[in-house]
Design a protein around this nucleic acid. Structure first.
Lengths: 115, 115
DNA sequence: TTTAGTACCTTGTATTGCAAGGTATTCAAA
DNA sequence: TTTGAATACCTTGCAATACAAGGTACTAAA
């Protein structure tokens, strides 16, 4: 169907905009490894693919927003636990503000639309 | 500065996700021409460039979500007024739902982050 | 007839999400 | 001891797309 295609496409677009923000939010709550981040995002209906998250974590690490440590697992290969840095936290504050601004913006247009 | 770069970059990303949604919302409130759509978005701090909006309007027209009519202006060249179609309205409903879902998702992660 | 303002549109570049494919580790069953 | 399943990591190549930059055209005033 074309209809759902348009919407699906846009849901994807919307998600893309908040990927880095979501990751930083999750890591601000505690250290996680890639697969668990994917799961946590899935839990709130923000779907991410592996091929998206790994390069992204590497990028955020390079930018100095994240760090990682290896940790053994009893149930498979070692896990790379990512943690947020101080720089990451300060940037996160900016993203919080950006998200709030965007939400307000959309709300405004929405209300105008209903008026 | 690099710091603001990271945030600016993400603000842009976030905006991108809601471009089509914003346009449909604005046109649901009344017919507008490209420049006025840009202005209305700017009014709520969602910045869009001309090079973004024109191809996008054409795409939405092709998808059948919009139509347009030419209208003379006393203050310059003719304006292309876009209007939302029935299909556009039905898709908009889906986008409303998508946005709500995303907002809730982010809220959830945010709250977990604060807990 | 030139300049300023407004409005339209296209081209080329750079970013980036993601499908697909690949490697490595552990554990349990055959 | 080999095979298979589960888990975890990562890379490559393609496709989509926002936007900077550059371009056309109409109106009105200087």
């Amino acid at each position: 169907m074309e209809n759902t295609g348009i919407i699906e496409n846009n849901k994807t677009q919307m998600r893309r905009g908040v990927l880095e923000y979501s990751i930083l939010l999750i890591l601000a709550a505690g250290d996680e490894y890639a697969s668990s981040i994917i799961q946590k995002m899935k839990d709130v209906n923000i779907i991410v693919a592996e091929g998206t998250i790994y390069p992204l974590l590497i990028r955020l690490k390079k930018l100095g927003l994240l760090n990682y440590r290896w940790e053994e697992s009893t149930q498979g290969p070692p896990r790379k636990y990512y943690m947020i840095t101080d720089l990451g936290r300060s940037q996160l504050a900016g993203l919080d503000a950006a998200w709030d601004e965007l939400s307000k913006g959309i709300e405004s247009i929405r209300n105008a639309s209903r008026a």
